[in-house]
């Protein structure tokens, strides 16, 4: 390409028309991002496409819709928990000690006479918050590693690959033990554990598609018109690899719920008087024969939340992966 071509290529890019060809060249997804000017113009169209694919998902995947609704329900309960009128999770009532489920205490009372329902609501809130925060952090960091590794290639790729291999070698709970030894048991340790354990997964998921997007013409075009590597990564590559990352995010959320539950169950996670689903099950296990509801309700809630997320992840995967259609 001559200097003149390069100059003329740069002018339309600055005006925002080069995005048209970029979008047409996108092999991964229909909606590649345009340049700044174009993306404003294309907004309505893109929104329309998005709502279209949402409608298609709703039509094709009733299971996905049910699990999405379950999940949204759980998130709503977690968000508005304190205003649901389920009572104070830390209020002690002597009469409610080991009380069987009744109208006043729909899920019974615990060993200190606290309402299991109220504690379940706040526990769900904390478990989901921890899972969401750590999954998003892990996704952001892991995707960054994967993008850089896939785009830079060579020794950077090799280095990141070896590093993620090392992180991958720690079974999550063992990693949690190590973290708990260094920083005292508690919520920051849980988040750190899940993030470290999940970074390698996202790095691998992001790296593969980055390699194939890097080889496309529109990435070459962006490089030729002088876009900087960060700009290429975030404006051209990242938007085209979001689908596998989203599917992985769903599975990471359920993995994070399991990990948080396990660590809190061991007493290394959420510390009393705070409650999470895992620590509630831990308490419930102790008094299992006297008050099985203390363990049953949090246990079933945790399993149901994980099931809903896994179902949604499965359906998303089937929906977005053309190779799995009709299977």
């Amino acid at each position: 390409m001559t200097a003149k071509d390069e100059a003329s290529a740069r002018v339309p890019a600055a005006q925002g028309t080069a995005g048209g060809t970029v979008r047409d060249a996108s092999p991964v997804r229909g909606t590649a991002p345009g340049e700044a000017g174009l993306s404003r113009l294309a907004m309505p169209e893109r929104q329309a496409r998005r709502s279209n694919s949402l409608r298609r998902f709703v039509r094709r995947s009733p299971i996905g819709v049910v699990s999405a609704m379950l999940l949204i329900g759980a998130l709503v309960v977690a968000l508005v928990g304190p205003w649901l009128g389920t009572g104070d999770p830390e209020a002690l009532t002597a009469l409610a000690m080991f009380a069987e489920p009744s109208a006043d205490y729909p899920m019974g009372g615990d060993y200190l006479g606290r309402s299991v329902l109220a504690r379940l609501v706040t526990g769900l809130r904390i478990s989901l918050a921890l899972a969401v925060v750590s999954a998003l952090l892990a996704a952001a960091l892991g995707a960054l590693f994967g993008l850089v590794a896939g785009y830079a290639g060579g020794i950077v790729d090799e280095g990141i690959g070896r590093f993620t291999d090392i992180l991958f070698a720690f079974p999550t709970i063992l990693l949690g033990l190590l973290v708990a030894a260094v920083m005292d048991p508690g919520t920051p340790g849980v988040v750190l554990t899940i993030v470290i354990a999940t970074i390698p997964v996202f790095a691998r998921v992001a790296r593969g598609p980055t390699l194939s997007v890097r080889a496309t013409e529109y990435t070459t075009a962006a490089r030729v018109i002088g876009a900087s590597p960060p700009r290429i990564l975030f404006r051209y590559v990242l938007p085209n690899i979001t689908t596998p990352l989203l599917v992985q995010l769903a599975f990471t959320l359920s993995g994070a719920l399991i990990a948080e539950g396990g660590l809190s169950f061991l007493g290394l996670g959420v510390q009393p008087p705070q409650a999470s689903l895992g620590s509630l099950i831990r308490d419930g296990k102790t008094y299992m024969e006297l008050a099985p509801w203390m363990m049953l309700f949090p246990g079933l809630t945790l399993a149901a939340a994980i099931l809903a997320i896994n179902l949604l992840g499965d359906e998303l995967q089937q929906f977005t992966d053309p190779r799995l259609r009709g299977r």
Binding site: S254, I258, K285, M288, A303, I306, L307, L311
Partner: peptide
């Protein structure tokens, strides 16, 4: 999918 979703410690407790 259910098997994948019930954490081992919950299943053990149950």
């Amino acid at each position: 999918l259910v098997g994948l979703s019930v954490p081992d410690f919950v299943l053990g407790t149950l």
